[in-house]
């Protein structure tokens, strides 16, 4: 699930870096000499239509068609058994139920925003900070980098399993540690241990620590790549002007990295909305770990699927994600050479 986010930064760094390049005098602006479609032979033209058409079709067919279908289905009631004749149109009823009756909905929205806030204000800045430190080419920098990046190559599902070993009620590391520190023996005084994953006020935070464990390294690598692309003459010039380190970063480097900052912002937002695996392996998104993404699958799966209702949650998730997506498209496409 994180893959897309990961991908984004990269893909986005590409166009964005070219924009960054424009700022830097060292990168010559590229001249575009693209060939016009019309001068090609018929056969070549067909080849090109094939080259673009087939992948575009697959993409549209498996992503955009279902997206539109989600919107349409959100106005219906259907238990997933039988064909279209079983689909009933019920207008906005699903949305009313969502708003007023379906109890997990508002907690899920809240949890998604808490997730976003934690990433945005803690995990992402920490990743950026470490990137800035590592950019100094300290001795052993590669080792630090490797260690911090390691969780990123793990699936969030595995991250969930590994952190359960830390949080588990009887066998987990933290509770055992606390027992040793406080001198209690958990058998005789049940309840002294902290129910990290079962307490609905705590478990979201416990999961966020695990998720951040992975997110920090991710942001670090992305940002480090951006920092490496910054022309050193900028730093030199700033130093000559008498700027201190902090000033250099905030007044010179940070603005130059605007494109990658956008990428990191969007990655953080999208990752927060996509969060699914870790919560699903821990308790299927029940009891304090409700997220919009999990509610959608909860309504889809099981003996009696609520297809229409689940789709209405998908539409809410779509509406929340569409803002950052448009923002991102606007920023990158503006920089994309025509």
């Amino acid at each position: 699930m994180s893959e897309f986010a990961v991908t984004q930064p990269v893909s986005s760094t590409a166009p964005s870096a070219s924009a960054g390049g424009a700022v830097l005098p060292t990168t010559p602006a590229k001249k575009r000499r693209r060939r016009k479609f019309s001068v090609l032979t018929r056969r070549d033209r067909l080849t090109l239509v094939f080259m673009v058409g087939v992948p575009a079709f697959i993409h549209i067919f498996l992503i955009w068609v279902p997206t539109v279908a989600s919107i349409i289905l959100s106005f219906t009631k259907w238990n997933g058994v039988g064909g279209i004749e079983k689909i009933q149109w019920i207008g906005l009823r699903n949305y009313e139920v969502l708003k007023d009756i379906y109890q997990p909905f508002w907690p899920a929205v809240q949890h998604n925003f808490i997730w976003l806030g934690t990433f945005l204000f803690i995990a992402t800045p920490l990743g950026m900070l470490i990137a800035v430190i590592l950019d100094r080419n300290l001795r052993g920098s590669r080792i630090y980098q490797s260690v911090l990046y390691m969780p990123v190559v793990l699936s969030l599902a595995i991250v969930g399993f590994i952190w359960q070993l830390i949080y588990a009620p009887g066998s987990g590391f933290i509770n055992n540690f606390l027992d040793v520190v406080t001198g209690s023996t958990k058998w005789t005084t049940p309840g002294t241990a902290i129910d990290w994953l079962g307490n609905h006020d705590l478990n979201l935070w416990a999961v966020l620590v695990a998720a951040s464990w992975r997110h920090v390294g991710y942001i670090m690598v992305l940002y480090l790549a951006g920092l490496k692309s910054v022309d050193n003459t900028l730093r030199e010039a700033a130093a000559i002007d008498g700027a201190n380190a902090r000033q250099t970063f905030f007044r010179v480097i940070f603005p130059v990295l605007a494109p990658i900052n956008v990428v990191i912002l969007v990655v953080t937002v999208i990752e927060s909305l996509r969060a699914f695996d870790i919560v699903y392996v821990i308790n299927k998104g029940l009891n304090g770990l409700e997220l919009l993404s999990v509610l959608i699958t909860t309504n889809l799966l099981g003996e009696a699927s609520l297809i229409g209702f689940g789709s209405s949650i998908a539409v809410v998730l779509l509406l929340i994600s569409i803002g950052p997506i448009i923002f991102y498209l606007y920023r990158t496409m503006r920089e994309q050479p025509e």
Binding site: F4, L62, T67, L73, L300, L318, I325
Partner: peptide, 16 residues
């Protein structure tokens, strides 16, 4: 289109 599709949370499309 490709970029937007790439950023979409998978759960938006899963039901259909």
């Amino acid at each position: 289109l490709f970029t937007a599709g790439n950023l979409l949370p998978q759960q938006v499309v899963i039901t259909p």
